[in-house]
Simulated assay, not measured.
Amino acid sequence: MATTAESTVSAKEATAAFFVSFKEKTQDVLDEFARIDSLPQAEGLALVNDLIRSVAELDKTTTSAAIFLPLYDQRQYSQQLKDLSAQLKEKRDALAPRAKFSFKGRNAARTASSKTAARPEASTTSTDAAAGPAKAGPPVVPPNAVSFYGLQGQYIASPPSDASEAGAVRDVYLISLADCVVNLADWQMSVGAVHIRDLTRCVVLVSPVSGSILLDSCIDCVLILACRQYRMHQSHNTRIHLYVGSKPIIEDCDGLEFNDYPVFTGSLGRLETSGLSALGNHFSEVEDFNWLKQHQSPNWRVGTPDNNTALQIVELLREGRWVEAKTAAQLPLVKPTSL
């Protein structure tokens, strides 16, 4: 029972608690920073390095809190930590022993010059770099993650070849997909979290995961998801069939429809093993960070109790009939006039 209570703490309460903790920790760093000038140089330098590590840890904590922090708060915290880190590094540079000046004779200078001349490729590299930055490639993801990037009109269902490794837990990234159908329902590997960004007219089915699902910039999509925490940014005109163990959070979104998660073969067992069934489903308790008034936000609504369409999509996907599944999803969606 205690676990359920902890998991259903509202995002606003979590945000308020984080604010208090962040303020205390940054103040501790500032208090210690004020002592540096009164210490011997070596001790002051050691303290600065300790404080730099503390700020780095606080930065990691802030990144982890992105699941419930509003975007504005994230930016403010990030800027404060950036400024504090710059201040500490400036102090470290001032305290660090400076290298002694040494005069190189002409022979040494000629030797260095000849070595440089023997490496013309170094000059070529510098010229290339000066010509301008290279075009941005695929997004950087953790080395152990599974990612699908830059696809259009594809059916994505096959897990990685090593997905059955015992104890393997992977994060999944779905980035820059258009007109795709994604079916991750039958993967046997353990998924830690799912990151979804820049999806257009896609259908996504993900079996229950024990961690978070973070979404950004989903347009005209149908999403069938189950997770412990759900957060969505800058998404529009999307239908979500959701099982979530805490209140879903949306920000800078509109035209969203939230529906209950469909029960299909194997889903109940996955909900149990992932620990989600004990938390209950809070899909209809959406918190809109852009709507602070007491009455209903115009940016989302609860759909009808009928889950036949979602079940039909699931059954078609699990049979590999992905074109028919996309047809059943009726994409692009027509924005309901009531939203």
Results as ranks from 00 to 15, higher is better:
136 A>W: 08
136 A>H: 05
137 G>C: 05
138 P>C: 11
138 P>K: 14
138 P>I: 12
139 P>V: 03
139 P>N: 10
139 P>T: 02
139 P>C: 11
140 V>R: 15
140 V>Q: 14
140 V>T: 15
140 V>P: 04
141 V>Y: 03
141 V>I: 07
141 V>E: 02
141 V>N: 04
142 P>W: 09
142 P>F: 14
142 P>T: 11
142 P>L: 10
143 P>I: 10
143 P>A: 12
143 P>W: 09
144 N>S: 15
144 N>F: 12
144 N>V: 08
145 A>R: 02
145 A>P: 00
145 A>C: 02
146 V>L: 10
146 V>D: 11
146 V>G: 03
146 V>Q: 06
147 S>C: 03
148 F>A: 12
148 F>K: 09
148 F>Q: 12
149 Y>I: 15
149 Y>M: 11
149 Y>D: 15
150 G>F: 05
150 G>D: 13
150 G>W: 11
151 L>A: 04
152 Q>M: 06
153 G>D: 10
153 G>F: 05
155 Y>A: 12
155 Y>I: 11
156 I>A: 09
156 I>G: 09
156 I>K: 07
157 A>P: 06
157 A>T: 14
157 A>Q: 15
158 S>P: 00
159 P>Y: 07
159 P>D: 08
159 P>G: 13
160 P>I: 08
160 P>T: 06
160 P>H: 01
161 S>K: 07
163 A>E: 15
163 A>V: 03
163 A>T: 06
163 A>I: 09
164 S>R: 03
165 E>F: 12
166 A>E: 15
167 G>L: 02
168 A>F: 09
169 V>A: 04
170 R>E: 05
171 D>H: 04
171 D>V: 01
172 V>D: 01
172 V>H: 01
173 Y>T: 01
174 L>A: 03
174 L>Q: 04
175 I>M: 11
175 I>P: 07
176 S>E: 14
176 S>P: 03
177 L>M: 01
177 L>V: 09
177 L>E: 02
178 A>L: 07
178 A>G: 05
178 A>T: 14
178 A>C: 09
179 D>K: 09
179 D>F: 08
180 C>N: 12
181 V>P: 12
181 V>F: 03
181 V>A: 08
182 V>A: 11
183 N>D: 15
183 N>F: 02
184 L>M: 15
184 L>I: 11
186 D>M: 05
187 W>K: 03
187 W>G: 00
187 W>M: 00
187 W>E: 01
188 Q>N: 15
188 Q>C: 03
188 Q>L: 07
188 Q>F: 02
188 Q>P: 00
189 M>R: 06
189 M>G: 07
189 M>S: 12
189 M>V: 09
189 M>D: 12
190 S>T: 15
190 S>H: 14
190 S>Q: 14
191 V>L: 07
192 G>D: 02
193 A>P: 02
193 A>Q: 07
193 A>S: 14
193 A>G: 08
193 A>Y: 09
194 V>D: 05
194 V>F: 06
194 V>L: 13
194 V>I: 11
195 H>M: 13
